[in-house]
Design a protein around this nucleic acid. Structure first.
Lengths: 249, 249
DNA sequence: CTTGAAGTTGACGTAACGTCAACATATACG
DNA sequence: CGTATATGTTGACGTTACGTCAACTTCAAG
C-alpha cells in the first residue's frame, strides 16, 4: 500500500520533479526507498504534502513551510503566518505604488509627454537641454558641473536625486495654503533648492534670478516642475527671487 | 570629462557591480574602455542610466527596460508599459487572494481550529480520522481506496482537489436561496459529490446515507464542511439522502 | 618603492523548480 | 526470452538581478 513518485504526483497535482526537490531539501522524504533507489510514499506523506501545498498556496516559501511543519504548534504557526502577512502587505504596497506610477507614466506619454525623471539632473540642464545650457552658460561651466559631481558623497548623490522633488511637493502645499513667497517656510525650501543646485554649480544672486525666470519662460521646465500647475512655477520663481535678494550677492 | 565606474555609481546610487552587470547584458555599455580595461562613462550614459533606473522603479525587469530603450518610441513604450501594467494587476490580485486566505487561516487557528484543506481527501476519511475509518469500514476498504487513487487521471485528481469545495459553495448558495433538497439543482451538485466520493470508494444507497448522517453526527466533519454553517451540513445530508433513494440501491 | 584605493575578470549563491541528458530498471508483449 | 516502452534515478544547467567574495592588476600618493 504505497505510491510511486509518479502516482503521488498525479494524485496531488505536482510534478515528480517537485517531489524530488522536496526530498532533496528535506521537506518531504519518502516513506522508504527501495534497493533500486525508487521512492515510495504512503498516506502519511500524502497528508504532509497536502499541508505543504496548502501553505504554499498562502505564498509562503519552502523555508516558511518547513518552519511551520517543524514547529507543529498552533502558536508557532500563527507567529510565522503573521510575519508572512506583514511581508504580503509590504509587497502589496509596493505593487500599489508601482501601478500608480505606471498609470501616470502611460497617461503622460499618451499626451505626448516624455519620460524625464524630475528626481535628478534638473540641476544644470543635463537632460534634453544640454546644448542650450552650453550656449547659455558656456562649455566650461557645464564641464565644471560634471567635474563637480565626481566629488559627491553618497549623501550628496541622494540629495541630488530626491530633494528637488521634495522642494516641489513642499512648495505646492505651501502655495495651496496661501503662504507668501517670502515666508520662512518657503525660504527654507528654497534654501534646500539652492543647496541642491549648488551640487552642480554655484549661482550668484543674478544667476539664481535668471535660473528662476528661465523656469517660467521655458515651457519644458514649467511642465517638468509644475506638472501642470503653472502657478507653482511662478511661485518658485518669486521665492527664488526673494532668496537671491536676501541670501545671495 | 568622463567618470569612472565608481564615480558613476556614487552619482547614480547604484553599485559598480550593477553597472558591470548592465554592461555584461548590453544594457549600458560604457562610453569607452581604456587600454587597461577600465570603463569610462560620459553624460550620455548617465542619462541612459537615469532612464533605466526610472523604468526599474516601475517594477519592469531588465528585459522590459531594454525593450523600451531599444524601441525608443512613445508608442512602443506605451505597449510595453500596458503589458507590464497587466502583470502588475495580476500580481496584485494574487497577493489579495493570498492575504485573504492568510487572514482567515490565522483567525481559524486562533479559535483553536486546525489547518485541513477541505479541497482534498475529505473523501474517505483520510485525514485525522483514518483510524476510525478503518474501524468503521474495515482495513480492506481503506486500502482499496488508496489503491484506487493510483488509477486516477490528472482530471480525476483535479476533480478530487476542487469539487468538494465547489459542492459546498454551491449548496450554501442554494440553501440561502431557499431551494428544496430534492430540487434538481441541488441533486446535480450531490451527483458531483457522489462522483468525487466514488473516486475513493463506491458507496451504495445505505452507505451513502450513513456517510451523510456521519457528516452531521461528527462535529469534525460538520466544522470542516459547514465552516460554521451547521444548517448547510444538515441540508447536505438531506440532499444525499434523497439522492440515495432515487439514484442508488 | 611601498601602500592603499580602485579597477578587472571569474565564479558561486539566491528560490523553486522546469527541462534536458544519460543511464538503470520494471513491465508488457510477441 | 529478447525487446520495446514506461518509469525511475542522479546530475546539471537555466531562470532574475545582482551581492559577495577571491585573485590579480593598475593608478596615485608619500
Amino acid at each position: 500500500m504505497s505510491w510511486s513518485i509518479a502516482e503521488l504526483a498525479r494524485i496531488s497535482g505536482v510534478t515528480s520533479r517537485t517531489l524530488r526537490h522536496y526530498d532533496a531539501v528535506g521537506l518531504l522524504p519518502p516513506a522508504w526507498v527501495a534497493g533500486n533507489g525508487w521512492r515510495h510514499y504512503e498516506r502519511e506523506q500524502l497528508l504532509r504534502l497536502q499541508q505543504i501545498l496548502l501553505l504554499r498556496n498562502l505564498g509562503l516559501g519552502l523555508r516558511g513551510v518547513a518552519e511551520i511543519l517543524e514547529r507543529d504548534s498552533r502558536d508557532g504557526t500563527v507567529v510565522v503566518l503573521r510575519r508572512h502577512r506583514r511581508r504580503l502587505i509590504e509587497e502589496q504596497e509596493r505593487l500599489r505604488r508601482q501601478l500608480g506610477t505606471v498609470d501616470r507614466t502611460i497617461d503622460e506619454m499618451q499626451e505626448g509627454g516624455t519620460m524625464t525623471a524630475d528626481t535628478m539632473f534638473d540641476g544644470f540642464e543635463h537632460n534634453p537641454y544640454e546644448a542650450e545650457a552650453r550656449q547659455r552658460w558656456g562649455d566650461e561651466a557645464v564641464d565644471a558641473s560634471y567635474e563637480r559631481m565626481k566629488g559627491w558623497t553618497p549623501a550628496d548623490a541622494d540629495k541630488a536625486r530626491t530633494s528637488y522633488g521634495r522642494v516641489h511637493e513642499g512648495l505646492a502645499a505651501l502655495l495651496a495654503g496661501g503662504v507668501a513667497a517670502a515666508d520662512d517656510r518657503v525660504q527654507e525650501l528654497v534654501d534646500l533648492h539652492y543647496q541642491v543646485t549648488s551640487l552642480f554649480w554655484t549661482p550668484n544672486a543674478e544667476a539664481y534670478r535668471g535660473l528662476a525666470q528661465m523656469y517660467v519662460d521655458d515651457e519644458r521646465f514649467t511642465r517638468n516642475i509644475g506638472q501642470g500647475n503653472d502657478a507653482l512655477v511662478a511661485y518658485l520663481r518669486d521665492a527664488m527671487s526673494v532668496y537671491a535678494g536676501t541670501r545671495l550677492r
